[in-house]
Write a protein that binds this DNA or RNA. Structure first.
Lengths: 210, 210
DNA sequence: CCTACCGATCGGTAGG
DNA sequence: CCTACCGATCGGTAGG
């Protein structure tokens, strides 16, 4: 439960260092406001030396963004596969979503904001993965509605509301703050249940029919 | 109900044109990815001519962002002042929030993303207004909890969840799409009520005690 | 509103 | 990993 979702394969050392520094700068200032010199300075090397590890600034962005959506989708699928109870699926998927957004704040911020700075075909690839993710959420809500376990007026809006409130976490969560990532996930899990019309359900109050 | 929340005072013509074009470009590409030449091109004039109307690129950003938070706060205060019923306050505040985010999508996007490109003291001024806004939301939830009308496990998280799900609207809402802004606002109003523990309340099912 | 022009900085290459 | 350097573009000014 501590650090289950690993980052990308921890590459050759310098490459990983560059990616990490760039991620931090892109998140704080933005891709276009970050120069190769900025990245080099943060590592104590000259800007041209970066080209020994990356072909271009754009390729650094690609590497920074690669893997984020894939990992999010993997955690999501695990949450769904862990139970047939649609209530529990919703809770676990929400917890996974919130945990991910609390833990990988920079990745999420850069992923969301700098997608517009990403060139094709990488950009379309990520847009597609996102679409896949939100579609799966909508399907989950629809499944719960179909089993008469959820009651919502718009499955799509409900799915987006849950997604968006989780994305917000990446903007303000402070891992050094009073609230732990785990407690945060529980709270959001409960809120998601409320959004589908389950007033105050403790963990196993509704069991799946299947 | 159609266009109640007006934009900024419609300034001298060219100034307003520049602001509008810049808003659109900043929203689509970002502040740092937009050059003065880009703005000029969109208006059919040369970049240096822009300096007859604005002192700097930064000042254009300031003018683009100015007023957004103020108007949002005004609509919010109106919603709160319109009734003493805390349930109705929550519903109307949510509707106002969502309407604003559906209508002024570019303003919201630029306001949220490019605040990091904004120089002091303007930046702190806007951060303060935002703080004011979210504080008012938390106070609203607390009021409902105090009157035993709302039931939440964390007033602050609930406030943020409502705010964030509304902010998401600015990212995907399509005014030319099937769902109207008004219907959207209703749906989100209902979802906000659910988040505070009011399962499926039609407009006046709970009346305030005061 | 324009042209002409400024110094600074950009991403990136050459060549070692 | 470095220095030296490239053309392009940046925000902005001068001067009319």
């Amino acid at each position: 439960m501590a650090t289950d979702t690993s980052r990308l394969p921890v590459a050759s050392g310098r490459v990983a260092e560059i990616r990490e520094v760039a991620l931090s700068l892109f998140a704080r200032r933005g891709y276009h406001a970050t120069s190769m010199k900025d990245i080099g300075d943060a590592l104590g090397i000259r800007a041209p030396s970066l080209y020994n590890h990356f072909e271009s600034k754009q390729q650094i962005l690609v590497e920074v963004m690669r893997g984020t959506m894939e990992q999010l989708l993997r955690d999501h699928i695990d949450a769904l596969a862990s139970t047939d109870d649609v209530v529990e699926q919703l809770r676990r998927a929400t917890e996974a979503h919130v945990r991910y957004h609390a833990r990988f704040r920079d990745e999420i911020q850069v992923g969301n904001i700098e997608i517009r700075a990403l060139e094709e075909p990488e950009r379309s690839r990520i847009v597609l993965l996102r679409r896949e993710y939100s579609d799966s959420w909508e399907a989950l809500i629809l499944r719960g509605v179909g089993r008469s376990v959820f009651r919502v007026s718009s499955p799509r809006l409900t799915a987006w509301a849950i997604l968006e409130m989780g994305i917000g976490v990446a903007r303000w969560f402070d891992p050094a703050g009073e609230m732990s990532e785990t407690l945060l996930a529980y709270h959001y899990g409960d809120m998601a249940l409320r959004l589908v019309g389950i007033a105050h359900a403790p963990a196993a109050s509704v069991s799946a029919v299947e």
